[in-house]
């Protein structure tokens, strides 16, 4: 593929995703009618990944605590470790871990599910039966991911802080009370609009955007799948890859938006 045709394909794909996003917004009023689908998508997404989120964020909290703690200890500042873990989890790692796990599990499943429907004429059947596929398929999936990502992020934040606490005590000799007091204190900076601490709600806001991005990218990838089982495989692969790239890029801009000097 030449550079130019690659660029055109990329523009075509992004155009499709943006259009899909606006179609989903347009169908939001159908949410009440689609509440059964929404509930089953919420349950599916949460149920499929909660244990992974718990495991990964626990270990991630431990690593942050260990690495930063060793550096802090050189300056005799290891008492500050609770602050570092809490802020890092809430602002960056909680939302990011959750998003990557969602992309790899739920996003890939969405792409495979819709891709299978695309290659086995099920999408054509919906069209012939005058069933609007954005309202019936895409909108509930996008909304479910947008809701589920911040909920999972709350778990990731909390479990990450707990994981960091174990390491703080066993490796750095920082007491439990001191650790949690400083962690909670660090998250007290109030937000402008909501009664949640700014670092937490900023992270949850990011997570919601990530969830929406993953769902839109994975759904478009599935809906556009062509050519049998092979096509479904390609759709799944590109859904995960593109979601993770999009998350990393968006994350920078959102962080900048929230925390610029």
């Amino acid at each position: 593929m030449t550079f130019l045709s690659g660029l055109l394909a990329f523009a075509d794909q992004v155009g499709y995703q943006v259009r899909l996003f606006f179609l989903v917004l347009h169908r939001l009023p159908h949410l009440l009618k689609r509440r059964a689908q929404l509930a089953s998508q919420l349950y599916g997404a949460g149920n499929k990944v909660l244990h992974v989120v718990v495991l990964v964020s626990f270990v991630m909290g431990m690593v942050i605590s260990l690495q930063t703690g060793l550096v802090l200890a050189e300056y005799g500042q290891q008492d500050q470790i609770g602050i570092v873990v809490a802020i890092t989890m809430a602002r960056e790692m909680g939302p990011f871990i959750t998003a990557v796990i969602l992309a790899a599990t739920v996003g890939s499943a969405l792409a495979a599910e819709l891709g299978t429907m695309a290659v086995s004429d099920e999408l054509a059947a919906l069209e012939v039966l005058s069933v609007d596929r954005t309202s019936y398929l895409t909108m509930p999936r996008v909304v479910a991911m947008t809701i589920m990502a911040p909920i999972l992020t709350i778990f990731a934040d909390a479990i990450g802080v707990i994981g960091g606490g174990f390491v703080a005590r066993s490796q750095l000799g920082v007491g439990r009370v001191l650790y949690y007091d400083s962690a909670i204190e660090a998250l007290q900076a109030p937000a402008a609009l909501i009664a949640l601490p700014k670092d937490v709600y900023g992270g949850l806001f990011k997570a919601a955007i990530f969830g929406c991005i993953i769902a839109v990218i994975s759904c478009s990838s599935g809906l556009r799948a062509r050519g049998g089982a092979l096509g479904v495989g390609n759709a799944t692969r590109s859904a995960v890859r593109d979601s993770i790239i999009a998350i990393i890029i968006t994350n920078y801009f959102l962080s900048w938006l929230f925390y610029q000097a």
Binding site: E113, T116, M117, S120, D121, E122, A124, A125, V128
Partner: peptide, 11 residues
């Protein structure tokens, strides 16, 4: 419209 493979919604 009857599709060649039936095209039932799989879920």
């Amino acid at each position: 419209y009857l599709f060649q493979e039936g095209a039932l919604i799989n879920w």
